[in-house]
Design a protein around this nucleic acid. Structure first.
Lengths: 251, 251
DNA sequence: ACAAAAGTGTTTGGCGTACACCCATGA
DNA sequence: TCATGGGTGTACGCCAAACACTTTTGT
């Protein structure tokens, strides 16, 4: 990837990158897709550069697709990070030597990169995390136990979560994070996990159904302890309509 | 400015710019500071480029200071615009010839610029709009009657206003937009203008005072028709505290 | 005296919070 | 049969929307 970018740097928007905070939900945990490269030996958000002839939104879609194999999912720009020092120690000399990079060209790398942050909501079970080459590991990690990240990626992650929490008051969430069929308690767990606090079962049911985006299925979850919860699905049309028109409430 | 940037382009972050939507309030009108250059003969948002060794936030502060003479005022990043075609027709050949720019160097200009949008709230009466050179006009224009703007600046302006409306539910507004002393009806007009709809006098008073950021002065506005309204000022400490901790309500 | 705008108080309905009870299932 | 979690209904309180009346000032 490093070498690739260097060889073709005229094809990329200079000094600009994209970083994606990809959220998934599994076993009542809100997870984030992280990438670990050997050089440096740290975790990072999946990111990429912006081709000269591509919208930055499209570049974000590309990053997402490259890492998850998914298309057409929820993706939203939330902030742009452009502090001078944000990536000053990113590429150590060791790395540059490793890549066989001349000091002249290295200048391109040492310069400040402004990065545009996007966050995505995906169905974790439908994704196939895709490493680029053998030096990479891609993993879903619980957002509560994220390790040290490179540069300001922790800050980016935090801002993404903060934005998601805000937007929870403006739109419904779950369509992209949950499987086709799900139960109300599962959806509630998702909300609780994002918000970081408990909600009342019964009030949650009333509020979430009042939005009018859920279809109660004539089916119950099987093989579960205790009373079998009802299965629901999203009414896609109404869901999208509400996402467009916005929601006016709070959690 | 054009020539200046070209001569020193190694000192600026390539392909990146800052655009500021500067809001002011005067005579019950929400106004925006716009710049008109002769080439092309159109209005634009005040903007600038980002020095290599300056945070993008700092660059936005610089633009604001350069145009209004103000420092330390409310300024917030709201979105980044990076469509490929957003500035493809910005600099016509006429302009490039006018500036004596070689086609080789012109390439720098024809390339896509990603721009980071900031919006600011300022006290219009304290500003001294400052044109750069004799080819520029800088003016406060009512946000309801903005003329055609260059490129996607109308889109940027709209997004700024949309963001401001959203943030009105999360924080109080007025400290930077109004003079030291003001009346409740004036503050209400400000809110109504931003939101684009009427509010109830009495409910507004109750809600705005309940926040606890206003100090009722022992003074009334003089020389006004009808009953003299009371003057208020903001309690700066409490105001800032609320801005930090956030507000949870709606208008 | 009258018009117009500011200041004060009251009623009402809806929504959010809290809680009690019943139902279904696996161990 | 008991523990656990899901499903349904209700009571309370607060806040926001709607509205009536009084007060003050300029003409």
């Amino acid at each position: 990837m490093l070498k690739n970018i260097l060889d073709n740097r005229d094809e990329y928007q200079p000094g600009l990158s994209i970083d994606c905070v990809i959220f998934g939900f599994h076993e009542n945990q809100l997870k984030v897709l992280l990438v670990k490269t050997k050089h440096p030996d740290k975790w990072a958000l999946p990111g990429g550069f912006v081709p000269i002839n591509e919208d930055i939104d499209q570049a974000a879609v590309s990053v997402l697709h490259a890492r998850t194999g998914l298309k057409g999912i929820f993706l939203r720009q939330f902030y742009t990070f452009g502090a001078v020092k944000r990536n000053e120690n990113h590429f150590s000399n060791r790395v540059l030597n490793f890549g066989g990079i001349l000091s002249e060209e290295g200048k391109w790398y040492f310069s400040r990169f402004v990065t545009v942050g996007y966050y995505a909501l995906v169905d974790l079970m439908q994704t196939i995390p895709q490493p680029e080459g053998k030096n990479e590991i891609v993993e879903w990690i619980d957002h509560n136990v994220v390790p040290d990240l490179i540069l300001d990626h922790k800050e980016i992650l935090d801002k993404a979560l903060e934005t998601l929490r805000m937007e929870l008051n403006l739109m419904p969430v779950g369509y992209n994070l949950l499987p086709e069929k799900f139960t109300i308690p599962e959806l509630q767990k998702l909300y609780e996990t994002i918000l970081g606090r408990k909600l009342d079962r019964r009030n949650f049911l009333r509020k979430i159904t009042a939005i009018g985006i859920l279809t109660k299925l004539d089916e119950k979850k099987s093989n579960v302890a205790h009373k079998a919860p009802n299965l629901y699905s999203f009414d896609r049309d109404k869901y999208n309509e509400v996402v467009r028109n916005g929601l006016h409430q709070g959690w």
